[in-house]
Structure formats: structure tokens, C-alpha cells
Design a protein around this nucleic acid. Sequence first.
DNA 1: CGCTCATATTAGAATAATTCTAATCTATTG
DNA 2: CAATAGATTAGAATTATTCTAATATGAGCG
Lengths: 148, 148
Amino acid sequence: MTIMPSTHAHARPYASALEVLRAAKLRPTRQRLALTRLLFDKGDRHVTAEQLHGEAQAAAVRVSLATIYNTLHQFVGAGLLREVVVDPGRSYFDTNVGNHHHFYFEDTGRLQDIPGERVSVAELPVAPAGTSIRRVDVIIRLGSERGR
Amino acid sequence: MTIMPSTHAHARPYASALEVLRAAKLRPTRQRLALTRLLFDKGDRHVTAEQLHGEAQAAAVRVSLATIYNTLHQFVGAGLLREVVVDPGRSYFDTNVGNHHHFYFEDTGRLQDIPGERVSVAELPVAPAGTSIRRVDVIIRLGSERGR
DNA sequence: CGCTCATATTAGAATAATTCTAATCTATTG
DNA sequence: CAATAGATTAGAATTATTCTAATATGAGCG
């Protein structure tokens, strides 16, 4: 793919990152644009803050870890990311915000999506008045061979 | 309830704590006995390390935080406790090791059991060869009124 | 019982992930 | 382009947890 004259009509990474941030009402700063691209230009992924920081540095993008955290949380707030809690002490951020669940490989720490349709949860009593379901997380924890 | 002459025939807290530890092949030390009682004498509960430490101090049991952590993890290893991960950076230990799932009140940080039968998960592809399912966690996250 | 030793416990230091702070920058708007 | 609200930053601070090395203790044995 060759360099194109600057138009605005197609989904180049840059343009789409900009749109993503605009839609989320977040100022498109240099670092947010870069992080948006790192996060969303490669399909669904699960990253930790440190990982993303590493990728940013590898890509010669100067971003502090504080900004990584700020941005990840803002993205979660804006519905661009979903935080997955599987490991005490480590947070994963999932670029797939659709209806789905997870396989978690305990040995390697890797997460894998399971399409939402493959899992059904029989209806349950919505808890005490004044509360509503934010989300239902299903995590299938996998270990190597020896089943426990 | 008054002090009983020392017999061995009924399920006093002390005796059962001893049995629990023996069954788990863990030496019944002073602190493990005390923690066993604190954990299991009051029905199903979800505690953090700090909480348990606090309870121990309140009960005038001298135990270091390191021992709390050691013990909690040994108990998990022995199948006496189950670790529930719902909050990044905080671990809950559940005295209910049977088949069940959880409501998680995001505002208060409280966990509540949901009997296992109330939740059914439609079968899913067991992941890559060489792995087996260790556990399936279903966490229903609740928020206050405003749904999201 | 009292020794011995493997196992536990402990205080405190160390680590890891994350958040905070206050100073410095930078989009945005007029 | 100046003003300013909002963003970024380095580094300190916080939180939860683990590690370390020294000390204590339960279990088995004579």
C-alpha cells in the first residue's frame, strides 16, 4: 500500500483514530491518537497497561505510564474498552466491547474471547432494589493437562 | 453457654478447626487454628486478607499479615477456600467452595453467592489440547440504579 | 517429658501495580 | 496568537502482596 494524497474519505488509521476520539468526546491529543491506533488497529486484543506502554515505546511514541493509565480508564468510561479482571494484581483491557466472554489460560496468563452466543446464563434474581446489572462476566479458567 | 469439661465428642469450634486442618494435612498451629475458626465458624463469607487480619486482632489473636497470606493461600491450595477475583488489586477469599457464582456490588465491594443451579452455561469448546477447565466463574456485576 | 528438626511464624524490607501531585504543556476557542 | 481548560509528565506516594532471614514451635522419638 502506497502513501495516499491527503483526503478524508477513507478509514486510514489516523483518520479513524481521530473519529474514535471525537465520538468519545475526548480531545485528540498526540498520545491519545497514538494509543488509539496501537489499541484498535490490530483487531481484538487484551492488553495490560505495561504492555501498552512497551508497545508505545517500541513505536517511538513518548507516553508516560500515568497517561497510559489515564487513557485506558477514560476509554473504559467511554465504552471503547472493557476491563477484564482475572488475575489479582493485574488488569487486562479488552478492545472487544461486544457481548462475549473469556477463556483464561492460567499458566500463560493469556485471555481468549468466547463469542457471547456460545454462553447462556439462565435468568437469575436481580439483586436488591436500587441495583441493576452492569455486566455478566463468564470466565472459563483453563489449566494444563492435570485437571486440578 | 458455659464452659464444658474437656471431652472430644462434639463439634466445638476448636475441635472442628483441628479436624479441618488435619484433613487438609496442615499442621494445626495456634494461628492456623484461630484463622480456621474465624473463617469457618460463621457460615459462608468473603474476606480479604486485611479484613481477616483485622478480625484476628479484634479477637486478640496475634498473627502477622504474612501468615494471613500464607494461610489463605494454603487453604486455597487445600480446597478449603476459593479465591474470587472481581476487583483489580484486591483478592477475596470465599469460604464456600461448592458450585456457585457471584453477585458483585460494585459500589460497596460486597460479594453475594448465587447457587450454582441458578446459572447454566451452554457448552463451549474446550480450548486447545493439553488444557482442561479448572473452573467456570460467573460474576454478575451490579451497580446502583443508573444502569451504566 | 525433653531433644531435634522440619515446618511455621514474624517483622520488616522489597516488589508490583496503580494512583496521586504539582508543575509543565497543548488543543481549542475567540 | 493569547487565554485557558484540559492533558501530560516525572516522580513520589499508596496499596496489596510477596520475600527474607531470623526466630519460634509442633511432632516424633528415645
